[in-house]
Simulated scan of single mutants.
Amino acid sequence: MKLLAAAPVAGGLAAAAAPAHATRAPLAAGATAPGIVKPLPPELFTVRGTNAESRFDAFGDTGLLTPADRFFVRNHTSTPVLDAAGWRLTLWGDGLHGRAPVHLTYGQLRDLPSVTRTALVECAGNGRSLYTTQQGEAVTGTAWTLGAVGAARWRGARLRDVLRRAGIASDAVAVQPRGLDDEYVTGGVDLGRVRRPLPVAKALDDVIVAYEMNGEPLPYDHGYPARLVVPSWVGIASIKWLGDIEVSTAPLSSPWSTDYYRLFGAAHPPGGSAPISRQTLKSGWELPFGATLEAGRTHRLTGRAWSAHAPVRKVEVSTDGGAHWRPARLHDAPRRDGWVRWSTVWRPHRTGPATLLSRTTDEAGDVQPERAVHNTQGYLFDAVVRHPVTVA
């Protein structure tokens, strides 16, 4: 396998340790997305280029955890098929005592004290297509609806334990994890492997280096053999196929914190916002867009709601396009970094088109707005979703 992209020349890591065996992911039987390992049946996924979006309506028969075979896939390039026996995690940089690179094997990572944490992972662009279809505003990027999100029970080592084992210095201010997938090339420019800095305060807080997902080793598409899980932050922070981490006494940057994953547009500073970190709040109906419902019959409709800021406090629903609202029934105890399932009953009498709405309010007082603040790359859509159905 090729070595990692070149690091800074002064005091940097010339080449981080790479797995002894790695291949490009084959096309799974029945799949239509090159470079994704698992099958992508159309009743569970919508393929979007190198990515696979979970069908939100397919979550209805799952519990709080998203099964791995229904979890969305966000790939910049292709899923690497790696060998844990040859895998090494390399920590390096001037933010380490001694400044010499430190290597951890897969076995050494698993020997560290483990934690289990249930958390959502959500792409920063989840809901992006709704800027255009619902608000009439142009954006760039993968046209996700609401399915670029999933919840899992992650098990691994605390990142702070990994950093302390490597000898993080007291004056370190940033870490930059980097993945082992192929270099990302766009417009003829090689941006290197996917990487994005984290402030040390977040890295030492609740971040884990995960090696299990829902009680099983990570699947290839979801970061095997090890990945970061950064609760409440945008999905790009949860680097998959973790290969090395730079530890620095100065702020760090990458294209994923300068060119991407910032907010640009008329509502934002001329040079763009600061790099985005925390996700936002959303809700959605577990029902296909454009579904047909029978008039004169009582329907039990379900959905999910979540917020990266605080536990969900309530969900309100409207079956008449927002003219009237009523509370939905919550089926789970709201918790940090998770979602809640909700339901409502509706007996429509008038045939024709109708619009269903759901609105989340969290314990911090955040409420889904009628419109999301536009940005040109379509991040952090948080508006109430207008869900069209037909009553027949």
Rank of each mutant, 00 (worst) to 15 (best):
Q368N: 03
V185Y: 02
V185E: 06
P388E: 00
A210M: 00
A28Y: 12
S273K: 05
L146N: 14
V391E: 02
P369V: 04
W325K: 04
T292Y: 06
P219D: 12
G296E: 15
T351D: 13
S78A: 14
L218A: 10
P80C: 12
A148V: 00
W92Y: 10
Y261T: 01
H103L: 08
A266Q: 15
L301K: 09
K314L: 06
A354P: 06
A305I: 07
D332Y: 05
R371N: 02
Y220R: 09
P80N: 09
T50P: 05
W154T: 09
L104E: 00
A100L: 11
D244F: 01
T50R: 10
P101G: 14
L120T: 03
D69T: 03
W256F: 15
W233R: 06
L44E: 03
H324A: 10
W342H: 10
G187D: 04
H103N: 11
P197F: 02
F264Y: 15
R350K: 14
D205K: 13
A328W: 14
S307D: 09
F45N: 11
A143H: 10
P39M: 12
L198T: 01
R158K: 06
A10T: 13
G49N: 06
I236M: 10
P369G: 12
K2D: 11
V389A: 01
P199K: 06
R347V: 13
A31P: 12
T302M: 15
L204E: 10
R117S: 11
P311Y: 08
A372M: 08
P388F: 01
W346M: 11
A6N: 07
R155V: 05
T351R: 15
V234D: 03
G235W: 02
P353Y: 01
A151I: 10
G243R: 05
A29G: 13
L96V: 08
P39Q: 15
P348D: 03
L27K: 07
A58V: 01
V139S: 07
P225W: 04
R88L: 07
G352C: 09
D111E: 14
H76Y: 07
L104C: 11
F264S: 10
T298C: 09
F45P: 04
G86N: 07
R297F: 10
E216L: 12
Q135G: 13
V121S: 07
S253N: 12
P348M: 03
G95C: 07
E370C: 02
G272R: 11
Q135F: 09
D182M: 08
A157V: 12
L204P: 04
P327E: 05
A201D: 14
G136N: 09
T23P: 03
L198M: 05
L293I: 10
Y211G: 04
A22Q: 15
T90H: 01
V247T: 11
V373Q: 05
S343A: 14
W306Q: 08
P255E: 07
A31F: 13
P26D: 11
A152G: 15
E246A: 15
T390Q: 09
S232K: 13
V173S: 15
P275A: 00
E316P: 12
S318E: 07
G147W: 03
A152K: 02
I276G: 00
V81P: 02
P269F: 06
L228D: 02
D382A: 06
A201V: 13
A157P: 08
T140R: 15
D181K: 08
D332F: 00
T23H: 11
G12E: 09
G271Q: 13
G167C: 06
A203E: 10
E53M: 08
A310M: 11
D366Q: 12
I245T: 07
G365F: 03
A52N: 02
D337T: 14
